[in-house]
Design a protein around this nucleic acid. Sequence first.
RNA 1: GCCGGGGUGGUGGAACUGGUAGACACGCAGGACUUAAAAUCCUGUGAGCCGAAACGCUCGUACGGGUUCGACCCCCGUCCCCGGUACCA
Length: 950
Amino acid sequence: MAVYNPSEIEKKWQAFWDKNETYKVDIDTSKPKFYVLDMFPYPSGAGLHVGHPLGYIASDIYSRYKKLKGFNVLHPMGFDSFGLPAEQYAIQTGQHPAITTEKNIETYIGQMKNIGFGYDWSREIRTSSPEYYKWTQWIFMQLFNSWYNKDTDQAEDIETLEALFAKGGSAAANAVCEDELAEFTAEEWNALSEEEKYKTTLDYRLTYLSESMVNFCPELGMVLSNDEVKDGVSERGGYPVIQKKMRQWMMRITAYCDRLIDGLENVDWSHSLKEQQKNWIGRSQGASVKFPVAESDLLKERAFEGKVEVFTTRIDTIYGVSFMVLAPEHEWVDTLTTPEQKDAIEAYKLETQKRSELDRMSDVKTVSGAFTGSYCVNPVNGEQVPIWIADYVLAGYGTGAVMAVPSGDQRDWNFAKHFDLPIPAISDAQQNLEEAADASKEGKYINSGMINGMEYQPAVDTLISWIEENKVGKGKINYRLRDAVFARQRYWGEPVPVYFKENGLPYLVDESDLPIVLPEIDEYKPTETGEPPLGRAKGWKYVPQPPTPSPKGEGEFVSYDYELSTMPGWAGSSWYWYRYMDAKNDDAFASKEALDYWQDVDLYVGGTEHATGHLLYSRFWNKFLKDKGFVKQEEFAKKLINQGMIQGRSSFVYRVKNTEVPTFVSYGLRKQYETQRLHVDVNIVDNDILDVEAFKTTRLDVPENAEFILENGQYKCGSEVEKMSKSKYNVVNPDVLVDRYGADTLRLYEMFLGPLTEAKPWDTKGIEGTSRFLKKLWRLFFDQNGSSLLVDDKGTPEELKALHKAIKKVGADIEGFSFNTSVSNFMICVNELTDLKCHKKEILEQLLIIISPYAPHIAEELWARMGKEEGSITSQEFPAFNEEYLKEDEIEYPIQIGGKVRVKLSFPAETSKGDIEKAVLANDEVIKWMDGKPLRKIIVVPKRIVNVVV
RNA sequence: GCCGGGGUGGUGGAACUGGUAGACACGCAGGACUUAAAAUCCUGUGAGCCGAAACGCUCGUACGGGUUCGACCCCCGUCCCCGGUACCA
């Protein structure tokens, strides 16, 4: 083989790695561990485009580098293989999702192997395989058997809760549990039957059944979590989503709100991602206050006695309350409405119901509302204020009621203006209350009873202690985050390991019965009675072991109905990094030995789109597993890198309007015609020049006789950066590029494109640069005829300098995740060595080692061709950087400044002493300024002093 | 609106976080080799000025100010782009 032939050597080495299990890794306590994890993909039918491997390439480089640095590196890959597309495909075609999924995974693995990733494939996992979801179900069971103790601030066995009940009744538990659920004494608890006790505990568990409002998408026939709903429509498919009451399995993620926020302090994740999670959890500190409803004959008649509870972050403004507002859906609205107001309220409720979620969100300016006719009493001053309803108050946040302070809140102000309600000032800083509300915390309070004359913080403290003393409210932290719905009315997901007894209560299956395998069904749609698809599974019943004969008849055993919904998509992905540690274990999700050794993920690479979904749920489950002592670390991923999206660069042709024969005009001339812009497949466009023949033959809508108005004999296309997608004809398939240029070139180019974390457009033409680079690298070893150029001589200072510059920079670049600049540094190094005609083994050996994480195939090949043992490059050590080689071109020149400070200065070797003297003298001003200031070094370019640094 | 991140040649992007701005690459122009093409190599390439040439000069990192011997980098103000989020009380 005379010249660099990527496709040949890449196949060879990929086969070699497979055969020799080069990347298989085991526990090795003699080495420090390092765990590099990619977010595993959902294997979609479309396969990978050039944007997908970006993060995988970066993590592959990093793990290869860490290995060369002496770490025992775990770098696995698997598939998040439960999911909606396979199921929808199944509904349309009848093909079992497992088959579709299997096929797609094969494609993915093929594509990944093509790029030469160093995954330990022996650890591959699939969330849809029973061996895997056995443990997802097992974790569900652990969650079910636990409750959250606010006092010890961790999850505990449900037995500890029962112990509390037995000792102090519900009060003992409610004191340490966020929600005030039941009320009973210890005696009452102890008198309960086992079944009643069990029933009581159900509401306290970390997974619980709840009748709650859910986002229901009629089109998809399923419940969606908040992060699956974007702008009132489903993220997948964009179908309308409505609110619906449903009995659902829930996950008590809210118990972990504080720890989920606080834990962010201890992980090296991007600032913006941490902010996203914080905003999503939405912790706001304030107070909850109860406003008693003012007594009236009507309410007495209706036997109503209640207090409107509100949450506020500005308790200091409570003297400015001039009305109350309830959400139209608030449960007391009907009771509080007087007969005179009934028509207005009913009309308003109807109106808000009609307005869809979307309208309500997009139209925030229109002020609307209605008066109930009732009043409530401000507990701090006894004043009566009217109770209104308005749709700017959301039923789903806080208590669904707010105390309106028009002087301090713009929305309340707008409402007050519109309905002509009073806007009392409460601070001497509030000046233009006729114009707008003033929410600032400046100034001293006025018209404010007990806090008159105070400033913000003392006022808050005073009021909080007052309301707590008088039992009308308390300081409270409110969260935006809701508990997560943990059920989907779908087939292709993990069955929930729960069955229902005759009493209607849910019970866990026995652990020895795991996994509860997904049953076969004939159709993947909901049943006629509206049950989830699993309702179609014939004879799918839970039979407790050992089977007890059923009174029903011969050979029948007592059996129960399973839970028919399946787990949501995020279940399997919320713990998968542990499974890789011990992927084949059938006795535990991972052995203690594996968990102790691998501990947690050192580097996690993936997209930012999972900020408020996967990454939050995973942290939640991890904290739970930590509480229960199953895992070691409070946070599962020490460092997280979000790779930026690779956008497509679309090409356009310009079709002239109203022509008989379809006519296309070149980009530069398009303004002379009236044209229509059309996407054209980027694969038949080279450097903005359209392959006209290919265009005519591949596009069915373009006839053979189509005309083209050219410029300079070529058809030039327009272009624009857009999201990469099929419909825009701008998808670039990595396989095509691997075929044409080789995987190493693709790997280098994807890194060279720009900073890993930035979004950047894909532009295929630039790949020539990295392709040329690898050819140049090859030519350091072989001439055009394929004869070896290698020599045994020692490297010259220039050669060593070129090499060590690269060693230094590449090392620093990888540690700093600047993969793009390290590719530049390889290029500089190879260019310099080419200029120096350096073919010395001593130099090239080390060069290959530092390049090998980026371009493993060519590095392996050249390594072997140097006479080294095949495949041994992966077990080399990353060369140590030696400063001496870079220093050589500097001379030191001691200089005295201002008579007292004596410093040693370094200059490039080519600077002559005379030049330095002249430069120093010519820069008298600078020297004077330097006098008396701490100095570090003086930077000199030939003939000019540039600067002085400490 | 709020939160976060940005704005550097024709293009993607460098600049060790205050020290020669534009590395490296693409593209473009010119040249060498070749019957020709491909491949490869060489030269030039921010804008402008002075020059026969060399040396050199001015401007230049979205815009306007400021701090500093020195600013893409720090501070103040303005404009624009991207991501997240939103009647969250």
